[in-house]
Amino acid sequence: MSNYFPTELLSEILVKLPVKTLIRFTAVSKSWRSIITSAAFIASHLSTNSKNQTVLLTRYGLDNKLDQFSLLEVSENGGFGINSSMVLEAPFGFQIEYSRVVGYCDGLVCLSNCMFFRNPSQRGIIIWNPSARYSTVLVVVFRRRSRYFPDTWSWRRLIRGVDVALRAYSNVYRRAFLYGVVHWLAKEPIHDRSSVLAFDIGDEVFGEVMLPDELATGASVELGVFVIEESLGIVGSTNELCDVWVMKEYRVKESWTKLYKIDLAEEIKNLVGFWKNGEALLMLRDLWLVVYNPETKETKDLGFYGNPYSSYVDIYVESLLLCMVMFLHKCFSIKSNYGWKV
């Protein structure tokens, strides 16, 4: 056989490998390392694998008072392998009682140390790549105009000449990130109308995404905002029902469609997120984490148990982002030991 693989062809194969294997293969040769850590390869790996979702599970350990993170492995049939989770070291590098997943995007997780505001000498915000087991501290610069905190946070804009304030719900950690825009549920207090507050990260502009009338004015309906199969989704639940809606065409109010109804309303403790084919991940009262298939209306136990009040789940896609930084950083530290030229 020919041993010669053109780089382009080699990249075609390598993009299909998981992050752990790719990091191992940086030891094959210097040219493999430069392929794997190049910006173009990292981008192409991300776009190839963006549908390979997994789950990042955060559990508060009652015994040691530390947050424990694990990535659940997905077995070949698309379900989770029971007991296959990979437990990760918390990336803060010191004991921390409360960390919080602020957001996640392209394989990176933003964690905040909730004690940071009391003790700013600690590391406050970390960008973490759990699948590469690498993190970096974000330098936070306080500016007056960026004081966006839950209780004081409001946004003012003119709607038909009337100055209206939309207020985000107090739990701003519940958000949906889609198309470069963060979405939170919000309330317009004058007409007691529910809506979605949207912040475009690129343009730094706030906007509003209107909800269907049924949800905007339904007084006793509890709402949740989600990403469902690459669309903006809303779940409206009461004690009796739990309806899943998607906005088929972004920012077109008329395109809100009721996707399905979850028949287990009274059993649901928490709706965690949405999985492949729009399946819902739920925490139930007696079982911990289950996946709900809307077609068969059956639930599948994922074999993970814990206290629903101290456990969080985020849907996660692994990536090589930050790996360029990781290798530069690590090469420099190696250089000091071995006199490498970087």
């Binding site: 191992r24 030891a27 094959v28 040769s29 040219s31 390392r33 030991n337 071995y338």
Partner: peptide, 20 residues
């Protein structure tokens, strides 16, 4: 299998493996 020449020195290779 890919017919690749290892161009790391033994020290460099050991360091890369140790880091990851």
């Amino acid at each position: 299998k890919f017919g690749i020449e290892n161009d790391y020195t033994p020290e460099e290779e050991a360091a890369v493996k140790e880091e990851h």
